[in-house]
């Protein structure tokens, strides 16, 4: 048996879904993490922060080995392509959470609590001194819940608007291979990459 409260919630959800504001929101919160091996960590970090700012993003964490950025979702793929071209990717993880439904539930809860708040205000105006205290207590609880919901919604919308991209850096050793000692096997002494490349010059 479907309760009237659930029907109301469902109808609110459907209404929310059909509104242009929801239609334009991405449905997934994106999180990506990369370990990059780079020659010059500081230079790469600077380039990534500058690029992030240029596309409307910003950095959350900028430490010795780690950089966490928030990048507008529509720019995220292009930004990642730019970032991975800065070095060699050692590890890469990408995940996305579908928080769209949770957001819609919170939005509908907020609307119903705001409606309830208006009713409580009316009741408060009409109530006598004896009942006013209990109505005020209920009002205080409701306002607290509404503020909490507003905070959650703001956070969730931000998570949908911005992809969080983390980078960990490793230094790439660019020492050219060189043999300090000759091998006991003569043909292995001739096995050198420069020899191969020079034979085509």
């Amino acid at each position: 048996m479907i309760k009237p409260h659930n029907v109301f919630l469902l109808l609110t959800l459907m209404l929310c879904l059909s509104t242009p504001a929801f239609a334009s929101l991405p449905s997934m919160a994106m999180n990506s993490s990369f370990t990059l091996k780079v020659d010059d960590k500081e230079a790469v970090m600077d380039r990534l922060v500058l690029k992030a700012e240029a596309v409307g993003g910003y950095f959350l964490v900028l430490s010795d080995q780690k950089l966490i950025l928030n990048i507008p979702q529509p720019q995220a793929d292009r930004f990642i392509q730019f970032a991975i071209a800065q070095g060699r990717v050692l590890t890469q993880t990408q995940n996305s959470d579908d928080i769209h439904t949770q957001l819609m539930v919170k939005e509908s809860m907020l609307k119903s609590k705001q409606t309830m708040l208006k009713k409580y205000m009316t009741v408060l105006k009409e109530s006598d001194a004896a009942h006013a205290v209990s109505v005020e207590q209920a009002l205080g609880k409701l306002v607290y819940q509404i503020e909490g919901l507003k905070g959650d919604i703001k956070l969730m919308r931000h998570r949908l608007d911005f992809a969080r991209i983390s980078f960990h850096f490793r230094f790439r050793d660019r020492t050219t291979p060189s043999a300090n000692q000759a091998s006991s096997f003569p043909w292995l002494n001739r096995m050198k990459l420069p020899n191969l490349l020079e034979s085509f010059q």
Binding site: T175, S178, A179, L188, M191
Partner: peptide, 10 residues
């Protein structure tokens, strides 16, 4: 022998 030599070389 080849793998050892080349990895030792760097």
């Amino acid at each position: 022998a080849m793998k050892k030599r080349l990895l030792d070389t760097g």
